[in-house]
């Protein structure tokens, strides 16, 4: 508990003072898996160029929610979704939405690093090729640029054509982030990106996210509250499919409105 107090005090100074415009706005979102009502009436604004953390005990619907933002839940036949998530004046949940284009603008990084079993450079160039980039020089430049951004360039520049699976777990995850950056998305969704990594690699990723938020809107799901406290500008607390509380990270951690929020962040359950 003392550990916790200390962490709560060590908020990053990056926390925004003034609210930036809302980029994605979820209104009354309901998600069902068959008969299971997994996400209930969620209203959540996501501000641009800032980090929004979704926290809560496992099974609380936070992963389900984030996977809906770029329609990854389309993969699950039994999943059903109601409500509005507006982004660029379009409801993302509209069946007419071109999910492929949507996912180019809203990228995603997963819990388990999932580089393709190809070379390091191919991993980054693959999405670009599909987006129609053919010029070899551009491809090379973007590859270097993306790897620079995630701080992986110096580590791998001599072995770009080695298999990506030969990298360590932390490097693989940073490669996956670099891969997501290649398409210059507006938003990056991260679904527990550090939970499969060691503490040193996790710290690197956190540092990286703090840099990236200058150019990208970042939404991160994490079950590690300290992580949310360290990097997020806004935090949303999910519990049993409901959004219990949302606000500036500092406010939510130091002065929560709801009892269940304070119970959770002080470690009384979950």
């Amino acid at each position: 508990m003392i550990q916790m107090e200390k962490n709560i005090v060590s908020f990053s100074n990056n926390t925004v003072t003034k609210d930036l415009p809302v980029q994605i706005n979820a209104e009354d979102v309901n998600i069902y898996y068959g008969d299971n009502h997994a996400v209930k009436h969620v209203n959540l604004p996501i501000h641009e160029k800032s980090i929004t953390a979704l926290i809560g005990p496992s099974g609380c619907g936070k992963s389900t929610f984030i996977r809906t933002i770029n329609r990854m839940n389309d993969l699950i036949p039994a999943a059903r979704c109601e409500g509005t998530i507006s982004y660029k004046d379009v409801n993302i949940l509209n069946p007419k939405v071109d999910v492929v284009q949507l996912r180019k603008e809203i990228g995603m990084v997963f819990q388990q690093p999932n580089p393709f079993p190809k070379s390091i450079s191919e991993n980054i160039q693959l999405p670009l090729r599909f987006a129609g980039v053919r010029n070899k020089k551009t491809l090379k430049e973007v590859t270097e640029d993306c790897l620079q951004q995630v701080g992986l360039w110096d580590e791998v520049k001599d072995r770009l054509d080695r298999s990506a699976t030969s990298l360590s777990g932390g490097q693989q995850q940073r490669l996956c982030i670099a891969r997501a950056l290649a398409l210059k998305p507006d938003v990056i969704l991260l679904d527990e990106p550090t939970s499969a990594l060691d503490p040193v690699s996790s710290a690197k990723i956190e540092e990286l996210l703090l840099q990236l938020k200058n150019d990208y809107t970042i939404v991160i799901v994490t079950h590690n509250m300290q992580q949310a406290a360290r990097i997020a500008d806004y935090t949303a607390f999910f519990y049993q499919g409901e959004l219990i509380e949302f606000g500036k990270t500092r406010t939510l951690f130091t002065n929560p409105e709801k009892k269940s929020t304070s119970d959770y962040i002080s470690g009384r359950f979950g």
């Binding site: 059903r80 409500g83 004046d89 379009v90």
Partner: peptide, 18 residues
């Protein structure tokens, strides 16, 4: 994923030729 009850204003949807 099936999507139901799309509460989107049709005017905005057609206006924004995104």
């Amino acid at each position: 994923m099936k999507i139901g009850k799309v509460a989107m204003d049709p005017a905005t949807a057609t206006a924004s030729k995104s």
